[in-house]
């Protein structure tokens, strides 16, 4: 269970990116976060695993307060959260297998990481996860040889092989074409359901969110302005999230 309470973040530049954001993710259903560009969606995810330091507020994962952790305890908490990125963020010059195995770094020593000597069960898990994302036989390819969709599948495998308690997914499809977007999103949702973990998914594309979501969080200027089932996402609610004037056809 993820509990975010009164999370606040102002960047050094003065951008007030998050304003007293509170919500809870219970159960294993995915939660989709929508909102205009600059609303603070990425900041929200990054404050949860502390890639960005929140100024105030609390984040609890299964009861453990994340915002207070330092050093080894923070790393242990990060192992429980798998992150998937808009730009994939694979280590481009490493192989697919090395990228997937980086999801196990939290469990091995520096010496092992240096020599790429991961425990056999980790290697086994990596092979199995590659198969789950449909990349069987790709382990020896270098990440920069793959297509966008294939890269994102590697990103998904890297997150899943952590055996996380939650997936943090930041616009997983913004760098992909519409058809690939849908299959990648389907994969994330299905695999999270199989592993019985929730996913917090930032997304630009409202129709795509509607197609996959049951619960939607609407973020605008750093504040949550909608939190409810997808059925409640009326034109009026969309106008609240995106501002009335810019509500075009594609937002529906």
């Amino acid at each position: 269970m993820l509990e975010v309470t009164a999370l606040d973040k102002t960047y050094p530049g003065g951008d007030h990116a998050l304003r007293a954001v509170s919500f809870t993710v219970e159960g294993n259903d995915p939660v989709f976060v929508i909102g205009p560009s600059g609303a603070g969606k990425s900041t929200l995810l990054r404050c949860i695993n502390r890639l960005v330091e929140p100024d105030r507020g609390s984040v609890r994962l299964d009861g453990e307060e994340i915002t207070a952790l330092e050093g080894a305890a923070l790393r242990a908490a990060r192992r429980k959260m798998g992150m998937i990125f808009q730009e994939f963020n694979l280590v481009e010059r490493l192989t697919v297998m090395e990228n997937v195995l980086s999801g196990r770094l939290g469990y091995v020593t520096l010496w092992r990481a240096w020599r790429r000597r991961f425990p056999p069960e980790d290697v086994e898990a990596a092979f199995a996860t590659l198969a789950r994302v449909g990349l069987e036989g790709f382990e020896g390819k270098r990440a920069d040889e793959l297509s966008g969709g294939q890269r994102q599948r590697v990103g998904i495998a890297r997150a899943l092989v952590q055996r996380p308690k939650i997936l943090l997914v930041d616009e997983p499809t913004s760098s992909l074409d519409p058809r690939t977007s849908e299959s990648v999103l389907r994969l994330i949702v299905d695999l999270a359901a199989e592993d019985r973990i929730p996913a917090l998914v930032n997304i630009h594309d409202v129709p795509l969110a509607r197609a996959f979501a049951r619960r939607i969080l609407g973020l605008r200027e750093g504040a949550i302005v909608y939190d409810g089932p997808v059925e409640g996402l009326t034109d009026e609610a969309l106008a609240r999230i995106y501002g009335g004037a810019v509500l075009g056809e594609d937002a529906r």
Binding site: R78, R79, S102, R104, L105, L110, A113, W114
Partner: peptide, 19 residues
């Protein structure tokens, strides 16, 4: 971004450098 993704897995500083 590539380094951040490795950090997000819970890697140590040394592992970040190496990996």
């Amino acid at each position: 971004g590539q380094v951040e993704a490795v950090a997000a897995t819970g890697a140590t500083r040394g592992q970040l450098l190496v990996y």
